[in-house]
């Protein structure tokens, strides 16, 4: 058997054991994965349409079909109240996309391929996170344009408006780690689809569609303490939309909690996700 090298190889391939530079590669590899995520967006823009189908249908359904029957405590236009809720719902559902991609990459062996390569292993997770945030920002932009078309406006000024979108992305960022963790835990794509059973109540039992004060007491309390509610309520205040804020401490401090909740979620689930990732070698 011949053991001569391929002529084109040795000339151009890098020194196998060059300096490690772990920090540099952690960022460079993360960026490579992010670029891959962006290429996905470009190669299949219809994906965004599908993903946004549900919120857009909800705009029409809740805004026009139920809209007249829905009351906002303290007054105000229901559609104005609804739009930030839909933004929040889209962010809340986002963790399913993260989980789904993580499951897919696991079952397809792409995760294993990455792990068998000399790349920075952190980039597998951080690259996913950054890609998802970029996708979420595109989602939000499309959704906001749709909302503008049906008459929603932000009266809060540019700074407050950006701050509100920042809070949505912060929530989405925190949920990435739950998505990664679940994606590493569920065995296959079908099981990932079942996560909808978790995502749906998570998004709905909140102030996204109905003010908690209109719900039965126990449900209202649950809804008020849902992190989605804090983000949505804070965004309504920043947008200058009707917010229907109740008297409870949690509702009164929505702005604070819209920052605190994501930090808590990240502090809990980021380490869990990383540990689960490292345990793949068990």
């Amino acid at each position: 058997m011949s053991t001569t090298s391929h002529p084109t190889r040795s000339a151009q391939l890098p020194d196998l054991d060059g300096p490690d530079r772990p920090i540099y590669w952690a960022f460079a590899d993360c960026w490579t994965i992010v670029r891959r995520g962006l290429t996905h967006l470009i190669r299949q823009p219809s994906n965004i349409a599908w993903q946004l189908g549900f919120p857009i249908v909800s705009v029409l359904l809740f805004g026009y079909v139920f809209g007249s029957a829905m009351a906002v405590p303290g007054g105000g236009d229901y559609r104005e109240f609804l739009m930030p809720g839909l933004f929040g719902m889209t962010m809340a559902f986002g963790f399913m996309n993260t989980a789904y991609v993580v499951v897919l990459e696991g079952t397809k062996g792409v995760t294993d391929r990455f792990r068998s390569m000399p790349m920075a292993s952190s980039a597998v997770v951080t690259g996913r996170g950054v890609s998802d945030i970029i996708t979420a920002a595109v989602d939000l932009a499309v959704l906001a344009l749709t909302a503008l078309v049906v008459g929603w406006r932000s009266d809060g000024g540019a700074l407050a408006t950006f701050a509100a979108f920042g809070l949505f992305l912060l929530l989405r960022f925190a949920l990435i780690w739950i998505g990664v963790l679940l994606g590493l835990m569920v065995p296959n794509e079908e099981a990932a689809g079942n996560l909808f059973a978790v995502a749906f109540p998570f998004a709905m039992i909140s102030s996204a569609f109905v003010a908690p004060s209109l719900m039965p007491d126990w449900l209202g309390t649950l809804a008020a303490w849902n992190p989605v509610s804090s983000t949505v309520t804070a965004a309504r205040e920043l947008f200058g939309n009707p917010a229907a804020v109740g008297d409870s401490w949690i509702e009164q401090n929505a702005m604070l909690m819209a920052v605190v909740w994501p930090l808590i979620i990240t502090a809990v689930f980021l380490p869990l996700a990383v540990r689960r990732f490292q345990r793949l070698s068990r």
Partner: peptide
């Protein structure tokens, strides 16, 4: 390593796949 499934990115082209993995091989 080639595992039990073809571990390539379905959405990218063949060329994009190899360039991406090439970058990740540094």
């Amino acid at each position: 390593l080639t595992g039990q499934h073809a571990a390539v990115d379905e959405i990218l082209t063949g060329r994009q796949n190899l360039r991406m993995f090439g970058r990740l091989f540094h």
